[in-house]
Design a protein around this nucleic acid. Structure first.
Lengths: 339, 339
DNA sequence: TTGTACGCGTTATCAA
DNA sequence: TTGATAACGCGTACAA
């Protein structure tokens, strides 16, 4: 039946009665070969079931059409959605996606970046800006095109496709202030390892300050992004300030954890205390009360990130900074404080 | 400063005063080189910041240490968790993960399989068994190690790491029967494109039959895996059989959609109607009432799948069939029917 | 234990 | 428009 070994360019060339160069051209730049020969070659390709050898192609062409993405976790819907959009856009451009998750650990991320570079990726998607100078230098030295998503960094050699975390959080705080709230608490993610979490807290403090409130009075607790931990942190916040009118949360998962704990503590939401989320994942709509939260365009971010990265690799101009809009989705978990 | 080109094996060899073969050995099989030379070589590697060229290595070694995974969607927590575990295990073995999602479309999956083969993966993780004979033949012809997860197929050239979908669903039905239920409805995923969905329905019918009930009376509606669609399908089911005592759902996402629709329709759960889920994702614990559902060991599946695949690539024996246990998690959404 | 030298399957340059 | 052929950078027999 079939040979045991896979067909090579050489085999196709022989079968079609042309040189390997012609076969290669047929595959990579069909317009440069006469239609009649091209048809003959493509027929041979199909008949032999030829597929180019990836290693050989990468070696000769110095590119892999492979892109890397390192995200904090795959199990949060926000990254999953963004990643899916990123991959879809890559696929549309005949590129494939290499994935790793860092568990929000910069050291792990650094190792994964090295691995991916060694894997010959053409470009890299990273989340946020918290990483060592060394690894940044390595990226730059290797000329690796990088797009950073989920945030808008300062000027940088890298591209950015994200949104203003501080401004989005500030807007939500302002909304609560407008409703008459004066006592705020914040249930945050780990700010030390996560610049988006830090930015969100910063945004809220800014909003408080410009409303004439004292940012120093903002009670802050940090928790991991699990329902369980978030619930515990929520209880600590309430214990610290039983009169807090709004507990703003770093993301929707934490907000749902807070919601559940509030329920367990016999607190009504938003009657006794308001709770706000961040991200607007589907989860926000199925809990009771539904979460008032910040809508973030995750899919658009993933897609745009891929576009920016692909353009960069193709050499279309300098790094870009794409700032996407966020909005507040009003549902039931935020209301005016009891009078 | 630095050269514009990246250092090669040659550069390292020159720097360390040895041959390229020795450097290569240092990197791939350190035990085969004297400690003193090895140290010198590794020092050069570090100083020059050498990283092996992926294409060259793949070409010469005929492997890429890259594994593919094609899953229906990244946005369902069950696959996200499994995929994360799969990747973690790969990383532990110095391998990386290539990802694509097929949106439950066999044609898309087929194209992605081809892309991944061309990309030179060493092994492949697929979900379920619904695919064309052709693509299966291609996989076999190329000698591609494949592990199929989330189900236990029949004997096959491929490995399996999954669970018995039919038996798990049957067990849940039996639980409801034991509670006294007699009128069942099933809210399923699209069975035509999804063998796990089909198996689950089959399992329930089997349980009904062996309890002396008529499987033909089981009302079935299909929906996509979104809260919205599932809610609509739930309403159709209730309209078809207003006296249904239990609506079993194909997964937790659908069950939550059903729960919400029941709430909107003024039905109390489990007072007026019981609802069961499948998967046991975190979501199941935060809704009200919490879902009684089938617990599936997603992480273990991902990890074991990686182990099986890696073993297969290393040539450790024939394909394996790993069957993992499932269990029923009793929460609040299933109760005895009103008497 | 180390070195020599060839082959892996492409792409791309240069001629024809 | 097509064909020879030289890289591309590494792994690995085989030899020393």
């Amino acid at each position: 039946m079939n040979e045991d070994v896979l067909p090579t360019l050489e085999d196709v060339a022989q079968d079609a009665g042309v040189s390997t160069a012609t076969v290669s051209r047929c595959l990579n730049d069909p317009s440069r070969v006469a239609e009649i020969t091209r048809n003959r070659v493509l027929a041979s390709v199909a008949r032999l079931g030829y597929l180019p050898n990836f290693g050989a192609r990468a070696l000769a062409a110095k590119r892999t059409d492979t892109y890397g993405a390192i995200i904090p976790t795959m199990t949060n819907a926000i990254f999953a959605r963004g990643l899916q959009a990123f991959q879809d856009e890559l696929a549309r451009n005949d590129a494939t996606l290499l994935v790793a998750s860092s568990s929000y650990d910069p050291m792990i991320e650094e190792q994964q970046i090295r691995t991916m570079i060694a894997r010959g990726i053409d470009g890299l998607l990273l989340i946020g800006t918290r990483r060592s100078k060394e690894i940044d230098r390595l990226l730059i030295r290797r000329g690796m095109p990088v797009v950073i998503a989920w945030t808008i960094g300062r000027a940088d050699p890298h591209s950015f496709v994200g949104f203003d975390n501080a401004a989005a959080a500030a807007a939500m705080a302002q909304r609560a202030i407008d409703l008459g709230h004066r006592r705020f608490a914040f249930l945050s993610g780990e700010r030390r390892r996560n610049d988006r979490a830090a930015d969100r807290v910063r945004g809220v403090k800014r909003a408080l300050k410009s409303a004439g409130l004292d940012p120093a009075e903002l009670a802050i607790e940090e928790s991991s992004y699990s329902f369980e931990d978030a619930g515990i942190a929520f209880r600590r916040l309430i214990e610290r300030d039983p009169r807090a009118g709004v507990v703003m949360c770093g993301n929707d998962v934490q907000a749902v954890g807070a919601l559940r704990m509030a329920h367990d503590m016999g607190l009504s939401v938003p009657g006794d205390v308001s709770i706000t989320g961040f991200d607007d994942i589907e989860l926000a709509t199925v809990v009771e009360p539904a979460l008032t939260t910040v809508h973030v365009p995750h899919r658009a971010m993933g897609r745009r990130a891929a576009e920016v990265l692909l353009a960069r690799v193709r050499g279309d101009g300098p790094p870009q900074r794409v700032k996407l809009p966020t909005s507040i989705v009003e549902r039931q978990s935020l209301a005016a404080p009891p009078t």
